[in-house]
């Protein structure tokens, strides 16, 4: 496996050779710098730490400045580790979008859009209680029963209820790479990707 950090630009659509209109997401991916190489001997697992996007030095803590100077690079905004990188990578090496090629399938990891406190209909896909007419009122989007009565006399753990929705780490698997534009560090991927525009995403293959 290997990967890269990117930034979601937005969605658009393009036409396939057969004339089909395909929805796609444009991602600015890389160039990323290898800021640390984890090895089994030293860390117990193998991984490559990548850093993406410039950051001002005055916004960087002394500890992080030291970390970046070890890889002899400038401070970066986003850091992520990728386990079991395909090829050997050395400290300070750059990883570009050329890692990917057209027609490949990638997994995209991002933080989904936060929806705030939501009810069970939106959060878990419940269908609400009963009908809208026939005397029914104010229970249209209610969760219904939470369980049985005297036994077990409690609500089971993990019962799906209303609460904070979205804003969690989401991985979308097997999205096709439609286009790679190395001059502008751009990659075009079929379908939607978690998160708002401008958010960081991790691409893995």
């Amino acid at each position: 496996m290997s990967g890269i950090i990117g930034k979601k630009i937005g969605m658009t659509s393009l036409y396939s050779a057969a004339g089909k209109n395909i929805p796609c997401t444009v991602i600015e991916a890389g160039p990323c710098v290898v800021t640390q190489v984890r090895t089994i001997e030293k860390d117990g697992y193998s991984a490559v730490q990548l850093a993406f996007e410039e950051k001002k030095e005055k916004h960087t803590s002394a500890a992080m400045k030291g970390h970046f100077s070890k890889a002899s690079t400038t401070p970066k905004r986003k850091i992520a580790e990728f386990r079991h990188f395909d090829s050997e990578r050395t400290l300070g090496e750059t990883v570009t979008v050329e890692l990917f090629s057209e027609g490949e399938y990638v997994d995209v990891i991002g933080t989904s859009k936060g929806k705030g406190f939501q009810g069970v209909v939106k959060r878990h896909g419940f269908s609400g209680v009963g009908m809208a007419t026939h005397g029914q009122h104010n229970r249209l989007r209610a969760p219904g029963s939470l369980g049985a009565s005297s036994y077990p006399s409690r609500v089971f753990k993990g019962m799906r209820m209303a609460g904070r929705t979205g804003g969690s780490r989401v991985k979308i698997q097997n999205l096709e790479v439609l286009k790679v534009i190395p001059e502008q560090n751009l990659i075009v991927i079929q379908g939607a990707v978690p998160g708002p525009k401008g958010s960081y995403v991790m691409l893995e293959k």
Partner: peptide
């Protein structure tokens, strides 16, 4: 947004 529209225009035949 600007990158998006230019890229979209590149990828689609006008």
């Amino acid at each position: 947004m600007d990158i998006l529209s230019t890229i979209a225009a590149q990828l689609t035949e006008k």
